[in-house]
Structures are given as C-alpha cells and as structure tokens.
C-alpha cells in the first residue's frame, strides 16, 4: 500500500467523527459566539448589540453568585469525593464476608438516575415531612429548612452531590485497586510494614493514575452540576438563586427566560473558565501522578 493511499484511508476513517465534530461542536461554538453578540427575542428575532451581553454579565450579581457557587461545589466537592471514595474503595477491597452485599449497596446511587436522586432528596430534605428532620429531632437537633434556607442550601446540595458521586467513583477506584499486583504488598509485608505504611507508601502511589482520572471526572462533573439543583429546589425562590450554578443559571437564562444571546454569553465565559481550570489540572498532574 503506498503512502497516498494510506493517507486517504486515514482521512476516510476519521471523516465521520471529523464531520460530526465540525458541525456539532466547531460550527456550533461559532454560532454560540455569534449569538453572544446579539439580543435574541423570544421567537428568534435577532439584533446586534456588540459586547452588551458581556458587560451586563460582569455586573450581574446572580451570575457572580452562580460562579462562586460553582467554585464552591467543585472546590469542596472534588476533594471530598476523591478522599471519601478512596477510603471506601479501600474498605471494600478488604477480604471480608459480605463483600458483594456491601458493594451492591454502595453502588446503588451510581446507577440511579440523577432525576430520581433529585426527587428523592427533595423529599428527604423537606422541612415539614422529611425523614432527615424527623431523625434529627430524635437526637434533639432543631429542624432546618435544608433546601429553602438560602444560607444552607449550598451545603445541602453539596452533600447529595458527594453522596451520589462517591458511589460512582468507588467503582473506578476499586477497579484500580484490584489492578495493583500483590507482589508489592507481599514484599512490604516481608519488610515488616504496618497497614498505615502500606496504604500511604504503596497503595496510594500505585493508585495515583486512577486517582487522577477520578479527580478529572469528578471535576468535570461538579463544574457542570445541574440536575440536582434543578430538581431539588423550586426555581422561583430565593434559595434557588443562592444555590445556582453556572449551568443552572445558563439554563434559566437561555431557556427559562428565553434570553438566548445572554445565555450564549454565559456559556462562552464558562467555557473559558473551565478550560483554564482543566488546563491547570493537567499541568499539575505531572507532580503527583506516577505511571509505572
């Protein structure tokens, strides 16, 4: 097979992907940028407004709060998700009876639709009829308005976010743990290392590629948080504004209020931010991830 033919074949093989990406992502993104310079009416009529949308965006307190909240969910969520799921995966990897039961139990949220999780927790959190306040009352703790008190609503969302994500990340980490060859452990035991030393000196470094993967996946997930907020909190309340993330705010603006131009501007700004954060992450990974 000559070179030209191979090149042609190569192009043909990537053509479906390339065409799809070109239309649905590159062209689409171009359109997004174009829209962000326009004021788009409810039923599609457009007027060019230049940078007006962006100027408005930078002065919009709700956008600032959405931005702050997104960092809150990511900044606290990712470390919590990663550390808790490492511990859980380690526990589940112990050779004990009932392993299959424990694993299935912990994995259930991972295979549950986020929509169902949202509906379920909305009901658990209900200040009047919810299970959580009921149980807290039993141990003498005052009832709280978990999903309607503006001051605590972010924390309530964070708890569910961690609960649901940990379940999924545990699967990946557990798989990572099972790939670590027992040779390392045997050697350590011969050297007389204790459990803690083994965990920190052997397990963690060998698991680091998987941990990195889990970190990235949970970061992408938390930066894009939408479903839980959307389903757990009533949209026209003050609590919703205090729980808003970039994506819920984008949805509200672009599809709830039909401000497509403004929504496009939100999406452009979010993209730049998320791109920067992910880039930094990838740069930092070299410092702590060990590939064998």
């Amino acid at each position: 097979m000559n070179k030209h033919r191979e090149a042609l074949t190569g192009y043909l093989f990537i053509a479906p992907l390339f065409l799809g990406l070109a239309v649905l992502f590159l062209y689409a993104f171009g359109q997004n940028i174009f829209l962000s310079f326009n004021d788009v009416g409810v039923f599609g009529e457009r007027t060019f407004v230049g940078l007006e949308n962006f100027r408005e965006l930078l002065q919009d307190p709700v956008f600032k709060r959405a931005l702050g909240n997104t960092f809150f969910y990511t900044g606290l969520g990712v470390p919590l998700i990663v550390s808790i799921s490492i511990c859980l995966a380690w526990l589940l990897n112990q050779k004990i009876k009932g392993q299959v039961f424990y694993r299935t139990a912990i994995f259930i949220p991972a295979i549950t639709l986020p929509a169902a999780i949202g509906l379920l927790w909305r009901w658990l959190y209900n200040s009047q009829y919810g299970l959580i306040n009921f149980l807290l009352a039993k141990v003498g703790i005052e009832p709280r308005a978990w999903i309607s008190d503006p001051d605590i609503v972010r924390w309530s969302i964070l708890i569910v976010l961690v609960w649901a994500s940990v379940s999924y990340m545990v699967i990946i980490l557990l798989a990572g743990l099972q790939r670590i060859s027992s040779v390392y452990y045997d050697a350590a035991q011969i050297d007389g290392a204790n459990t803690r030393q083994i965990f920190f000196k052997i397990t963690l470094p060998l698991l680091s590629p998987t941990i990195f993967f889990v970190t990235i996946v949970s970061m992408i997930g938390t930066l894009q948080i939408f479903d839980l907020i959307f389903l757990m909190i009533r949209a026209d309340t003050v609590a919703y504004q205090y729980a808003n993330s970039l994506v819920t705010y984008f949805y509200e603006a672009a599809f709830g209020l039909n401000l497509r131009g403004y929504g496009a501007a939100i999406s452009v700004v979010s993209l730049i931010l998320i791109f920067l954060i992910t880039y930094v992450q990838f740069r930092l990974q070299k410092r702590w991830v060990h590939y064998d």
């Binding site: 993104f29 999406s267 998320i274």
Partner: peptide, 10 residues
C-alpha cells in the same frame, strides 16, 4: 475539556 451544556443553544 469542553462541557457539553454550552452547545445546547446551537
């Protein structure tokens, strides 16, 4: 790296 949601409008 691009989050899918930003393409919703286009």
């Amino acid at each position: 790296m691009v989050p899918g949601q930003i393409f919703l409008i286009p």
